Amino acid sequence: MAVTHKQELPEEQGTALLKTLRVRFEKNMSRHNGLEWAKVQAKLEANPEKLWSLSEMEKTGGEPDVIAYDEETGEYIFCDCSAESPKGRRSVCYDREGQESRKEHKPENNALDMAAAIGIEILTEEQYRELQELGVFDAKTSSWVKTPAEIRKLGGALFCDRRYSKVFVYHNGAQSYYSARAFRGLLKV
């Protein structure tokens, strides 16, 4: 379910966020070799609703950064690059169905609804593995990933983490949630 955001940041917040993103971009050039910040910033300034989504990613602890440029679409791809799963998105079930199926101790939210509200996509297993090529992520935590319909229909959901220098994919009931599990998001600008 895609949500279109018409929300924009107040100018001061937008300026502060652009500065934060620029500093992170320049500090982590290995994630986006050959890309220029000025072009990224121009795209962001032309798409204020995307800047709002990046602000939400930042507020929830995602530390978004550019990880790729899609030549075909002309889009920059931002991803949550926090070392561990974003703190402000932890302790959530996979989706609303999983959340509502809990008889007790229901969490306040779920990964898919949170991603939609922020205006981002939850990472697929393939995207998660590609992110892990850029650094070490989720060495102590784990992240829900987009689950194939056939697994979800049977009540399951997938999550990934990195242990022993390898990326692992696991399964859990979609209604489960843990204090060390969140989700990572992707935003195309």
Rank of each mutant, 00 (worst) to 15 (best):
K146G: 05
Y170V: 03
L158F: 09
F78C: 06
G156S: 05
V92W: 00
E108Y: 13
Y177I: 03
C81H: 09
A116R: 13
A117R: 15
Q132R: 09
S91Q: 11
S143F: 04
L158M: 11
V92S: 01
A111H: 06
F159R: 01
P64L: 11
M114F: 11
R163A: 12
L131G: 02
S91E: 07
Y94E: 01
Q127F: 00
Q175T: 10
E125K: 07
P107Y: 02
I77H: 03
C79E: 10
T124E: 06
N109A: 13
D65C: 15
R96N: 13
P107Q: 06
A182V: 05
R96W: 12
G155K: 03
G98K: 00
R181N: 06
R163C: 12
S179A: 14
S82A: 12
L158V: 01
G88W: 00
F159I: 07
Y164E: 14
M114C: 12
Q132I: 11
I118Y: 06
E63T: 15
Q175E: 03
M114S: 09
G119Y: 01
L134S: 08
N172L: 05
K103L: 04
E75L: 15
E125N: 10
R90I: 08
R152P: 08
V136A: 10
V169C: 13
Y178K: 04
F183W: 11
N109P: 12
V169T: 13
P107R: 00
G155D: 03
S179D: 13
G135V: 00
A180Y: 08
A180W: 06
S179E: 14
S85N: 10
A116E: 02
A182T: 10
R162G: 04
G155E: 01
Y69W: 15
E63K: 15
L158H: 04
A117V: 09
I122F: 08
E97M: 08
E133Y: 05
H171C: 08
E125D: 13
T141L: 02
N109M: 08
H171V: 05
